[in-house]
Design a protein around this nucleic acid. Structure first.
Length: 115
RNA sequence: CCAGACGGCUGGACGGUCGCUGGCGGUUCGCCGUCAGAGGAAAGUCCGGGCUCCACGGAAAAGCGGUGCCGGCUAACGGCCGGCGGGGGCGACCCCAGGGAUAGUGCCACAGAAAGCAAACCGCCCCGGCUUGCCGGGGUAAGGGUGAAAGGGUGCGGUAAGAGCGCACCGCCUUUCCGGUAACGGAAAGGGCAUGGAAAACCCCACCGGGAGCAAAACCGAAUAGGGGCGACCGGCGCACUGCGGCAACGCGGGGGUGCAAAGCAAUUUCCGGCUUGUCGCCCGGGUUGGUUGCUUGAGGCGGAUGGAAACGUCCGUCCCAGAGGAAUGGCCGUCCAGCACCCGUUUUGGGAGCGGACAGAACCCGGCUUAUAGGCCGUCUGGAUCA
C-alpha cells in the first residue's frame, strides 16, 4: 500500500451533514454507518464524522471519532474519489473492535458505494 | 503482627511507525526543521470573584433571595484554620440546619380525662348517705394508663392521702464576682420552679447581595438581493403624498409610490393574462456566510528565606507551562512493570500459556465545594496481641 498521506478534507457545516442524511446513500457495517453522495465540484473526497450521545460519554465518543478518522485516512489514501462526500457515524462497538476489521469494513462499504 | 483513625502523594513505563494543533526559525511558497501540547477531578454547574455588556445621579428604605456559635485567614465565599457548646466512640477521632420560642400570630395529628392563663379516667385519702360495696361531695399530680411530649429529678422529712409543703444534692432562672478578645467556663448569693415542643409554619434580629453572560463583547466585511443620497441622460396624463404662499377656493414646485396609457420581454399572429419600466457613474448606511480580536502572564508555577499554633502572609530568585473551534493533544504495533486467575513441579526459590489497565477529555480565566475513582505508595496516631 502507498505510504499514508495527509487526512482527507473535512465536512464541518451542519447543513452538509443534513444534506447527506437526507439524500445520501446509506450503508450500515459493524463499527459504523456510512452515508455517501456525489458532492460539489471539489477535486478531493471530503469526510465528516459523527458520534452521538447514545454511544457513550465524551471519552468514548472522542475515541470513536479518532479511530474512524484514522481508518479513513489510511483507506482513502489509495483511492481517489473526486467530488464524493462521506459521513461516518460511530456505533457502540467502534471504540474497542479490531482496528484491522474496521478498516476492512470501511473498504468494503466504499466498494458498495462505488458500484 | 492484627484491627482501626487521620493526613498526603500517585493515577503505568520505554521504544518504533504513521498522523493532528500551536509557537519559533528557514523557505525555491511545494514545504522543511525544532520546541510544546488534558485532569485531580478537565465532571456536576452548587457558591465566590475577575472580565464584558445592559440598567442606573448618590445613598437609604421596602421587597425578594441568601447566610446564621466565637475569633482569625482570604480579593471574596455558603470556603479554610483554631476554639466553644451538644452528641457518638474504650480510644486515635468523628458528627451537628448550632441566633431568637418572656416581640407577636398560628400549630401540637392519633391516643388520652386532660396538650397551655392546665387538667381528676383509674387509683389513693377524707366526709356524708344507705340497699356494706356502691352513690354523692371534696382533697390529691406520689402510683397506673395514653402519648413524641403530662408543668423539674433523686432521697429524707412531712401528711388523712399527697404536693417544693419543708430540707439536702443535682438541674433551672436572676444578680454579682473571677478567668477568657469572644463564644463560653467557674464560683457565690438569692428564688421554690415560673420559662413544654417546633423557628424545616409564619415571623423577628444581624450581616451580605443590581441583571445577564465569552453563543458576553468589539472590529473587518465577499457575492447576490434589497435600502438611501448626489450627478448626467431618458420619461405621456392623472392621483395619493408633500414644500412654499394664501382666510379660503387655489397658485407655483416636488412627486420613476401608484392607476391608466405607451414601450419592452417569451413562440408565427390576434385577444386575454403575466412580468419589466429607468440606465450609467460615484458615494453612504445596515447587515448574513465567513474572518480577526477577546484567548491565555495569572489572586500563576517552582525553589529559598522569614513571621504565625494553623489557615495564611511578606521578601528574594527563577520559569513561561495547551489554546481547539463538527472542536488538536492521537491511531496502530512491540517489550516491560503492577494486578487477576490457571497448569506443572514444590518446604521454598521456580517454569509455562492466558487475561488485562479506575474515574474520566480543557472550551474566557481564577478560588472553593460536591460527586466519581481499579490499583499502589508514604507519614502521624489509637486500641489489642506477642517478644525482650
Amino acid at each position: 500500500m502507498a505510504k499514508a498521506q495527509t487526512p482527507p478534507a473535512r465536512l464541518t457545516r451542519r447543513a452538509e451533514f443534513l444534506r447527506l442524511a437526507a439524500r445520501g446513500q446509506k450503508i450500515a457495517k459493524h463499527g459504523f454507518v456510512l452515508q455517501a453522495a456525489k458532492g460539489g465540484q471539489e477535486e478531493a473526497v471530503r469526510v465528516g464524522y459523527t458520534a452521538t450521545k447514545k454511544i457513550g460519554n465524551a471519552v468514548i465518543r472522542n475515541r470513536a471519532k479518532r479511530r474512524l478518522r484514522e481508518a479513513a485516512r489510511l483507506v482513502l489514501a489509495g483511492r481517489p474519489m473526486p467530488g464524493v462526500e462521506l459521513v461516518l457515524i460511530a456505533r457502540r462497538e467502534t471504540g474497542d473492535m479490531e482496528f484491522s476489521r474496521l478498516k476492512q469494513n470501511f473498504a468494503k462499504a466504499l466498494d458498495e458505494v462505488l458500484s
